[in-house]
Design a protein around this nucleic acid. Structure first.
Lengths: 183, 183
DNA sequence: GTACGCATGTAAACGGTTACATGATTTG
DNA sequence: CAAATCATGTAACCGTTTACATGCGTAC
């Protein structure tokens, strides 16, 4: 009996599912096609460098979740598609509620946590900078929203909406901190 | 002339500054002391395994930002303190506004983004689970807040406050999605 | 036809996660 | 004094990041 895949199966990471999801939407597609989509969508809340979009599909081919087909002329680009197992893995993941809890990982929060209570001025400066960052991102995301309104699904628009609400919440919070620095 | 540190200096990561900040608060302290504090504070919004609290101080000693002193009896635990360079590096970081933008990295958001518009029931199920997760975390964080209210600085309490607001924002968002799934 | 930018990809190094391991302390 | 739990640490693997490299099209 033929064994498919090399050796033990690995646990898939969120990146794996991002790639499966992207291929699901775009197949057949190249790594660069994925990159293009990432740039205007999930890249805004789940950033990663494009090299992952080359490395991860290779692993998924090993796992028999993707198939790769290489052009025989020109640039010999690699085109990816889902296998049946890939479709299944993606659908199962999409259906199952998320188990991990989304963390903030905001460096500004770290700085606030470690701030010197006696140095309220530094805190105010930090807070003002954070307000700026979040308001700028509200601008960016609003523009993206308008840009993609035609093409994106309602669920995709909703992800943008949560992003905007988060930045609004954060901007308000930091504005309060700037106004009245704790210390 | 004596050369301090081995080879080229590396770029410090957020983890580096977490450790510098922890040592700043607790020095002299062991990795385990840091772990204790992490568990009831930044661990809630910037989680990482305790092994990092052993690995990173070793690197920081190489960088001459920490000094290590080993007990000569008993468990021979390692105690860390900041060097002058460590104090400086930490203070400089703390003063400078954060440059990276805190990202969401919420797996639930990914699932929403990739959800099948035709399958509104899955979306509603996902959303209901997300509501539960965030409301539970509101409970947890509220309890932590009450627990540490005596000991924590106002700035530290403020970080908890932002965490709570984020979970509130997210819980509300997902409740709306559950109520009226896009698709 | 040259220059610039977009498209496409690779490789090495490093941090982070996971898993394991075992010595102390407390509790019953 | 046995068992459980806390305290303390190590090692290996693997994903991610960073940096480099270079073909192809297009505009001037």
């Amino acid at each position: 009996m033929a064994v498919v895949g090399d050796g033990e199966s690995r646990a898939l990471t969120p990146t794996s599912y991002v790639v499966l999801g992207l291929v699901h939407m775009l197949q057949p597609c190249t790594s660069y096609d994925m990159k293009q989509l990432v740039n205007v969508s999930i890249g805004h809340f789940w950033p990663f460098p494009h090299s992952q979009l080359y490395a991860e599909p290779t692993r998924l081919v090993d796992d028999d979740l993707l198939v790769e087909e290489q052009e025989d002329a020109g640039r010999r680009r690699r085109l990816y598609r889902l296998t049946q197992a890939g479709e299944d893995a993606f659908r199962d993941w999409a259906r199952m509620p998320a188990q991990d809890i989304g963390e903030l990982r905001d460096e500004g929060l770290l700085k606030l946590f470690f701030s010197d209570p006696a140095d309220r001025e530094s805190i105010a400066t930090l807070a003002a900078a954070q307000v700026k960052v979040h308001e700028e991102r509200i601008e960016t995301l609003s523009a993206v929203r308008d840009d993609v309104a035609e093409d994106a699904s309602p669920a995709q628009m909703a992800t943008l909406e949560l992003g905007l609400r988060w930045d609004r919440t954060a901007a308000d919070f930091w504005a309060e901190v700037a106004d009245n620095p704790p210390g």
